[in-house]
Design a protein around this nucleic acid. Structure first.
Length: 253
DNA sequence: CCCTGATTCGC
DNA sequence: GCGAATCAGG
């Protein structure tokens, strides 16, 4: 694994999203050890670990992290769906070599003591729904980008702080008519929107909700392009968003 | 058993 | 610096 700035930043993003190291590893095609190791070296903030040797004492009763049951996606309905999608369209992803596909991931960060800076803002929605993958055929535009689906079934019960849905339309308006289709070739979704209920994903948007820019900044906006039918993203971003599922575990490349 | 994240340590 | 091996709690 060559830790490019890109991959590192992706790692950071996913890390702070609260994804498990194993999950991050799967997404980045590396082992969880690699992820943990790197994170450690980067001095990324520790995450609620199942192992807690040192209990923080003292603290004003404010526990540093949410422990209990961290977001553990596991196989949920969404996953099933994704699996199905995968089966249906087993377009194998052209093995993303070094560069993983960034995607607006979404996972409930359980309760984080420190709200991400952008939290209030990030609000977006996005939440690519797995379910939809099934419904739509892979786009023809981009070279068949396989069809993985974001996981993150997130427990709706989580203490999710609540997100303000930002209608994609707004984003469109926001961007005015300017819709650069491939702005900074690197949409690293830093924080993602929490996924909403998988119930009715298709309500959102008539526009691609791929996040562009840093959430919380002025530049932040959504792609806004026309989405691929059934998916929340335009063809271009759908290609980035849906990647081949990896086998379970750390089977890394 | 499974999961998890943290640490160690040879490379 | 990297990450497999190992550790250790749930």
């Amino acid at each position: 694994m060559d830790w490019t700035e890109e991959s590192i930043s992706l790692l950071r993003a996913l890390w702070q999203e609260g994804l498990s190291t194993a999950e991050i590893g799967r997404r980045m095609s590396v082992t969880k050890n690699a992820v943990v190791g790197k994170a450690h070296r980067l001095s990324l903030p520790p995450r609620p670990s199942p192992i807690r040797k040192i209990i923080d004492a003292g603290s004003t009763g404010l526990s540093p992290v949410s422990v209990a049951s961290p977001p553990r996606p596991r196989r949920g309905a969404a996953d099933i769906a994704s699996a199905a999608a995968l089966d249906a369209a087993e377009t194998v992803a052209p093995s993303p070599a070094p560069v993983p596909a960034p995607r607006p991931v979404s996972v409930a960060p359980a309760a984080t003591v420190v709200p991400p800076v952008a939290a209030p803002v990030a609000a977006s929605v996005a939440a690519p729904a797995a379910n939809e993958a099934v419904a739509s055929a892979p786009t023809e535009t981009v070279a068949a980008p396989a069809d993985r689906v974001p996981s993150s079934p997130v427990a709706e019960a989580s203490v999710v702080p609540l997100r303000k849905p930002v209608p994609p339309d707004a984003s469109e308006a926001d961007t005015g008519t300017a819709r650069a289709e491939a702005p900074p070739s690197r949409p690293v979704p830093e924080r993602a929107p929490l996924r909403a209920v998988s119930a009715e994903p298709r309500r959102r948007g008539l526009t691609c909700c791929w996040p562009l820019g840093e959430p919380g900044t002025k530049e932040f906006r959504f792609c806004g392009d026309e989405p691929v039918p059934g998916k929340p993203y335009c063809a271009e971003h759908a290609a980035l968003a849906y990647v081949k599922i990896r086998d379970r575990r750390d089977s890394v490349a």
